[in-house]
Protein backbone atom coordinates (compact mmCIF):
# COMPACT_ATOMS: atom_id res chain seq x y z
CA UNK A 1 0.00 0.00 0.00
CA UNK A 2 1.30 3.44 -0.86
CA UNK A 3 1.76 6.06 1.81
CA UNK A 4 0.63 9.66 1.62
CA UNK A 5 3.35 12.10 0.50
CA UNK A 6 2.07 14.65 3.02
CA UNK A 7 0.31 13.69 6.22
CA UNK A 8 -1.08 16.58 8.25
CA UNK A 9 -2.39 15.70 11.72
CA UNK A 10 -4.25 18.04 14.09
CA UNK A 11 -2.25 21.09 13.03
CA UNK A 12 -3.04 24.39 14.74
CA UNK A 13 -1.47 27.77 14.18
CA UNK A 14 -2.23 31.19 15.64
CA UNK A 15 -0.95 34.65 14.84
CA UNK A 16 -1.44 36.43 18.15
CA UNK A 17 -5.17 36.33 18.84
CA UNK A 18 -6.07 35.16 15.36
CA UNK A 19 -6.36 31.41 14.96
CA UNK A 20 -5.36 30.65 11.39
CA UNK A 21 -5.57 26.84 11.58
CA UNK A 22 -7.77 24.82 13.93
CA UNK A 23 -6.68 21.22 14.26
CA UNK A 24 -6.42 20.50 10.54
CA UNK A 25 -5.80 16.91 9.37
CA UNK A 26 -5.29 16.02 5.72
CA UNK A 27 -3.42 13.57 3.48
CA UNK A 28 -1.95 14.33 0.08
CA UNK A 29 -1.20 11.30 -2.05
CA UNK A 30 1.67 10.98 -4.55
CA UNK A 31 0.65 12.32 -7.95
CA UNK A 32 -2.42 14.03 -6.58
CA UNK A 33 -3.42 17.55 -7.61
CA UNK A 34 -5.23 19.22 -4.75
CA UNK A 35 -6.88 22.62 -4.94
CA UNK A 36 -7.52 24.53 -1.71
CA UNK A 37 -10.32 27.06 -1.95
CA UNK A 38 -11.95 29.41 0.52
CA UNK A 39 -12.29 33.05 1.46
CA UNK A 40 -9.20 35.06 2.42
CA UNK A 41 -8.29 34.38 6.04
CA UNK A 42 -9.64 30.84 5.86
CA UNK A 43 -6.17 29.37 6.51
CA UNK A 44 -5.38 27.83 3.14
CA UNK A 45 -2.25 29.92 2.54
CA UNK A 46 -1.09 29.33 6.12
CA UNK A 47 -1.45 25.58 5.58
CA UNK A 48 0.89 25.76 2.55
CA UNK A 49 3.36 27.93 4.45
CA UNK A 50 3.41 25.42 7.30
CA UNK A 51 4.24 22.61 4.88
CA UNK A 52 7.41 24.35 3.70
CA UNK A 53 8.05 25.78 7.17
CA UNK A 54 7.85 29.47 6.34
CA UNK A 55 5.37 29.38 9.23
CA UNK A 56 6.02 27.25 12.33
CA UNK A 57 3.06 25.26 13.59
CA UNK A 58 1.91 25.58 17.21
CA UNK A 59 0.52 22.09 17.66
CA UNK A 60 0.13 18.84 15.74
CA UNK A 61 2.51 17.38 13.18
CA UNK A 62 3.25 17.34 9.45
CA UNK A 63 5.04 14.43 7.83
CA UNK A 64 6.53 14.88 4.38
CA UNK A 65 7.73 11.75 2.59
CA UNK A 66 7.63 9.95 5.95
CA UNK A 67 9.77 12.52 7.80
CA UNK A 68 8.39 14.70 10.60
CA UNK A 69 8.88 18.37 9.69
CA UNK A 70 10.67 20.91 11.87
CA UNK A 71 11.11 18.75 14.95
CA UNK A 72 12.66 15.46 16.03
CA UNK A 73 11.10 13.10 18.56
CA UNK A 74 13.56 12.03 21.19
CA UNK A 75 12.91 10.61 24.66
CA UNK A 76 9.25 11.52 24.62
CA UNK A 77 9.99 15.16 23.78
CA UNK A 78 10.09 17.17 20.57
CA UNK A 79 13.34 18.99 19.73
CA UNK A 80 13.45 21.70 17.10
CA UNK A 81 15.65 20.93 14.09
CA UNK A 82 18.58 23.19 13.19
CA UNK A 83 18.27 25.75 10.41
CA UNK A 84 20.41 23.53 8.19
CA UNK A 85 18.17 20.49 8.71
CA UNK A 86 15.06 22.56 8.04
CA UNK A 87 16.70 23.87 4.85
CA UNK A 88 17.29 20.29 3.77
CA UNK A 89 13.64 19.38 4.40
CA UNK A 90 12.53 22.41 2.36
CA UNK A 91 14.33 21.03 -0.68
CA UNK A 92 11.57 18.43 -1.04
CA UNK A 93 9.00 21.15 -1.69
CA UNK A 94 8.90 23.84 -4.34
CA UNK A 95 7.00 27.03 -3.54
CA UNK A 96 5.39 29.46 -5.99
CA UNK A 97 4.36 32.76 -4.44
CA UNK A 98 1.46 35.05 -5.21
CA UNK A 99 3.83 37.94 -5.89
CA UNK A 100 6.45 35.81 -7.74
CA UNK A 101 9.37 36.95 -5.51
CA UNK A 102 11.92 36.53 -8.28
CA UNK A 103 15.37 37.85 -7.39
CA UNK A 104 15.39 41.22 -9.22
CA UNK A 105 19.18 41.46 -9.47
CA UNK A 106 19.47 38.16 -11.31
CA UNK A 107 18.41 37.19 -14.82
CA UNK A 108 15.69 34.62 -15.43
CA UNK A 109 18.36 31.96 -15.96
CA UNK A 110 20.31 32.99 -12.83
CA UNK A 111 17.11 32.88 -10.78
CA UNK A 112 16.69 29.25 -11.79
CA UNK A 113 20.32 28.18 -11.35
CA UNK A 114 20.81 29.93 -7.97
CA UNK A 115 19.34 27.14 -5.84
CA UNK A 116 20.87 24.11 -7.58
CA UNK A 117 24.37 25.64 -7.72
CA UNK A 118 24.47 27.49 -4.39
CA UNK A 119 22.39 25.24 -2.15
CA UNK A 120 22.71 21.82 -3.74
CA UNK A 121 26.27 22.49 -4.89
CA UNK A 122 25.77 20.98 -8.32
CA UNK A 123 27.98 21.63 -11.35
CA UNK A 124 27.06 24.87 -13.08
CA UNK A 125 27.15 23.73 -16.73
CA UNK A 126 24.88 20.78 -15.99
CA UNK A 127 22.50 23.01 -14.00
CA UNK A 128 22.54 25.60 -16.78
CA UNK A 129 21.47 23.04 -19.37
CA UNK A 130 18.64 21.89 -17.11
CA UNK A 131 17.57 25.48 -16.45
CA UNK A 132 17.42 26.25 -20.17
CA UNK A 133 15.30 23.12 -20.64
CA UNK A 134 12.97 24.28 -17.85
CA UNK A 135 12.69 27.72 -19.46
CA UNK A 136 11.80 26.03 -22.74
CA UNK A 137 9.19 23.97 -20.91
CA UNK A 138 7.50 27.11 -19.52
CA UNK A 139 7.74 28.75 -22.96
CA UNK A 140 10.43 31.32 -22.11
CA UNK A 141 13.54 29.99 -23.83
CA UNK A 142 14.09 33.40 -25.43
CA UNK A 143 14.00 35.24 -22.10
CA UNK A 144 16.92 33.51 -20.35
CA UNK A 145 18.98 36.70 -20.09
CA UNK A 146 16.11 39.04 -19.21
CA UNK A 147 15.84 40.56 -15.75
CA UNK A 148 12.50 40.14 -13.91
CA UNK A 149 11.68 43.83 -14.41
CA UNK A 150 11.78 43.24 -18.17
CA UNK A 151 9.20 40.44 -18.00
CA UNK A 152 5.41 40.61 -17.72
CA UNK A 153 3.73 39.27 -14.59
CA UNK A 154 2.76 36.04 -16.32
CA UNK A 155 6.32 35.54 -17.58
CA UNK A 156 7.73 36.23 -14.12
CA UNK A 157 5.43 33.67 -12.57
CA UNK A 158 6.44 31.07 -15.16
CA UNK A 159 10.11 31.74 -14.34
CA UNK A 160 9.21 31.33 -10.65
CA UNK A 161 7.66 27.94 -11.43
CA UNK A 162 10.81 26.94 -13.30
CA UNK A 163 12.93 28.13 -10.35
CA UNK A 164 10.96 25.90 -7.99
CA UNK A 165 11.13 22.92 -10.37
CA UNK A 166 14.92 23.27 -10.72
CA UNK A 167 15.29 21.94 -7.16
CA UNK A 168 13.56 18.71 -8.29
CA UNK A 169 10.92 18.83 -5.54
CA UNK A 170 8.55 15.95 -4.75
CA UNK A 171 5.74 18.40 -4.03
CA UNK A 172 4.87 21.74 -5.59
CA UNK A 173 3.06 24.34 -3.49
CA UNK A 174 1.25 27.16 -5.30
CA UNK A 175 0.07 30.10 -3.20
CA UNK A 176 -2.54 31.94 -5.30
CA UNK A 177 -0.20 31.90 -8.30
CA UNK A 178 -2.50 33.92 -10.57
CA UNK A 179 -4.03 36.39 -8.09
CA UNK A 180 -1.52 39.16 -8.80
CA UNK A 181 -1.81 38.84 -12.57
CA UNK A 182 -3.72 40.89 -15.13
CA UNK A 183 -6.66 38.80 -16.40
CA UNK A 184 -5.16 38.27 -19.87
CA UNK A 185 -1.98 36.75 -18.32
CA UNK A 186 -3.68 34.18 -16.08
CA UNK A 187 -4.11 31.63 -18.87
CA UNK A 188 -0.41 31.25 -19.68
CA UNK A 189 0.42 30.43 -16.04
CA UNK A 190 -2.47 28.00 -15.69
CA UNK A 191 -1.37 26.28 -18.90
CA UNK A 192 2.07 25.63 -17.41
CA UNK A 193 0.47 24.29 -14.24
CA UNK A 194 -1.83 22.01 -16.24
CA UNK A 195 1.14 20.63 -18.13
CA UNK A 196 2.91 20.05 -14.82
CA UNK A 197 -0.14 18.25 -13.38
CA UNK A 198 -0.27 16.05 -16.46
CA UNK A 199 3.39 15.10 -15.96
CA UNK A 200 2.44 13.51 -12.62
CA UNK A 201 3.73 16.15 -10.19
CA UNK A 202 2.07 16.20 -6.77
CA UNK A 203 0.61 19.66 -6.36
CA UNK A 204 -1.20 21.68 -3.71
CA UNK A 205 -2.74 24.79 -5.22
CA UNK A 206 -4.37 27.61 -3.28
CA UNK A 207 -6.49 29.29 -5.89
CA UNK A 208 -9.58 31.27 -6.75
CA UNK A 209 -9.59 29.85 -10.29
CA UNK A 210 -12.49 27.45 -9.97
CA UNK A 211 -12.34 26.64 -13.68
CA UNK A 212 -8.79 25.40 -13.20
CA UNK A 213 -9.82 23.42 -10.11
CA UNK A 214 -12.70 21.79 -11.98
CA UNK A 215 -10.51 20.85 -14.93
CA UNK A 216 -7.27 19.77 -13.23
CA UNK A 217 -7.80 18.98 -9.54
CA UNK A 218 -8.16 15.41 -8.33
CA UNK A 219 -9.52 16.77 -5.08
CA UNK A 220 -10.91 20.10 -3.96
CA UNK A 221 -10.68 21.13 -0.31
CA UNK A 222 -12.89 23.97 0.93
CA UNK A 223 -11.61 25.73 4.05
CA UNK A 224 -13.31 28.26 6.30
CA UNK A 225 -12.15 29.84 9.58
CA UNK A 226 -9.05 27.69 9.79
CA UNK A 227 -10.76 24.35 9.31
CA UNK A 228 -11.58 21.99 6.44
CA UNK A 229 -15.31 22.22 5.82
CA UNK A 230 -15.73 19.95 2.84
CA UNK A 231 -13.52 17.99 0.47
CA UNK A 232 -13.92 15.57 -2.37
CA UNK A 233 -13.81 15.23 -6.14
CA UNK A 234 -13.84 18.60 -7.91
CA UNK A 235 -17.12 17.85 -9.66
CA UNK A 236 -18.77 16.99 -6.31
CA UNK A 237 -17.48 19.89 -4.18
CA UNK A 238 -17.88 22.51 -6.91
CA UNK A 239 -20.90 20.99 -8.65
CA UNK A 240 -22.95 19.62 -5.78
CA UNK A 241 -21.68 20.95 -2.43
CA UNK A 242 -23.21 19.35 0.64
CA UNK A 243 -22.30 21.96 3.27
CA UNK A 244 -24.20 25.24 3.56
CA UNK A 245 -20.97 27.23 3.97
CA UNK A 246 -19.54 25.76 0.78
CA UNK A 247 -22.71 26.61 -1.11
CA UNK A 248 -22.63 30.19 0.21
CA UNK A 249 -18.97 30.61 -0.78
CA UNK A 250 -19.44 29.18 -4.26
CA UNK A 251 -22.51 31.28 -4.99
CA UNK A 252 -20.59 34.39 -3.84
CA UNK A 253 -17.60 33.57 -6.07
CA UNK A 254 -19.35 32.60 -9.27
Amino acid sequence: MTKPLVAIRSVSKSFGEFQALRSVSLDVWPGEVMCLIGASGSGKTTLLRCINQLAVIDAGGIWLDGALLGVREQGGKLHRLSEREIGRQRLKTGMVFQRFNLFPHKTALENITEGPTQVQGRKSDEVRAEALELLRRVGLAAKADSYPAQLSGGQQQRVAIARALAMKPMLMLFDEPTSALDPELVGEVLAVMKELAKSGMTMMVVTHELGFAREVADRVVYMDQGAIVEQGRASDVLGAPREERTKAFLSAVI
Partner: peptide, 17 residues
Amino acid sequence: DIGQYEAAQAIGMGRLR
Protein backbone atom coordinates in the same frame (compact mmCIF):
# COMPACT_ATOMS: atom_id res chain seq x y z
CA ASP B 1 11.03 42.88 0.51
CA ILE B 2 10.31 40.09 3.01
CA GLY B 3 9.25 37.95 0.03
CA GLN B 4 12.90 37.85 -1.04
CA TYR B 5 13.91 36.15 2.25
CA GLU B 6 11.02 33.72 1.84
CA ALA B 7 11.89 32.90 -1.76
CA ALA B 8 15.51 32.31 -0.70
CA GLN B 9 14.38 30.05 2.16
CA ALA B 10 12.02 28.20 -0.16
CA ILE B 11 14.99 27.13 -2.32
CA GLY B 12 16.70 25.84 0.82
CA MET B 13 18.98 28.75 1.71
CA GLY B 14 19.94 29.41 5.32
CA ARG B 15 19.77 32.89 6.83
CA LEU B 16 23.39 33.87 6.17
CA ARG B 17 23.47 32.56 2.61
